[in-house]
Amino acid sequence: MSYAKSTFRHPNLKVNDIGLTYRDYEGVVSTLCAGCGHDSISAAIVHACAELSLPPHKIAKMSGIGCSSKAPNYFLGRSHGFNSVHGRMPSVTTGANIANKDLTYLAMSGDGDTASIGLGQFAHVIRRRLNMVYMVANNGVYGLTKGQLAATSDKGARNKAGDISPFNEIDLCVMALQLGASFVARCFSGDRQQLVSILKAAISHEGFAFIDIISPCVTFNNQANSKRSYDYVQQHISTAAISDFVPVKDEISCDLPAGNYDDICLHDGSLIRLYKSDENFKCDDKLHAINMIEKHKVKNQILTGLLYVNPAIDTYHEVNQTSDTPLNQLREDVLCPGQRVLSSINESFR
């Protein structure tokens, strides 16, 4: 078993604006099962961050427990990270975010960590409009404990051991839409191009960005009757609009392929350009998005792509008027103003 990649590099690797190649954004070699969809997500994150020229030390990787939550070790090896308690990643991220709003928070969670033990935390972090990217690596099973069915499995789905899921599934995208997430997308780990451009858009989006990523469990949920297998997803995937991310620095060229597209301008001036395969598709309407998701389900299709975005919504910091300066940069006398200020606060409650 190999524990390290060769440090030899292709001489023609692209260098980004801060002089790094994508390999500078890699983590250690994965110990997940060979062929795990999560590794594909890790690679997409590596490429997205490299292409956005994010300084690695300005990123924090947040996770809970599970195969998904192990994954942050396998990307962004030079960034900060916090591997928290099962299902409690949203609280830890909230704390971190309040203390330092200058970091990019990339949260990696799984179907168990989010849709079961962490469902309450998931709901509230959306409600709180935290500025973060919340990814769920969704494979429909608990891979780390050998493949029990997860709450995101469709009713009637069978796992490798033959158990049938007797209950309705939790659709995390629908939940996120209902609870007020300002950026909601569904992706497939096997569609790298789409995943990277949506990740870049999600990172650039100011507000809570949720991406549900279907990520096949190659060991416990890739059998013939699975609806989360590589084969099944590849055959049943449907994309309403292929999104392309245009960063601020790039001029929008006029020789883009002709066709039906919408441009959505993000907070920082970058653009999401959507090439629509379905003319009626719009991604500024929550109800429409929920409708589309459900309609595709009836047709046994998995709708992927950017489903909803609202680029102009106040985030947690704006609502709560929290400190603009990260707490670690505040002088001690500002951070702890002392007895006199405390007394005046107490006085205001009398």
Partner: peptide
């Protein structure tokens, strides 16, 4: 091949 892209991502020399 199930096109999981694992090989593509791990290859140190692209």
């Amino acid at each position: 091949c199930i096109e999981c892209s694992a090989c593509e991502d791990i290859c140190p020399l692209d």
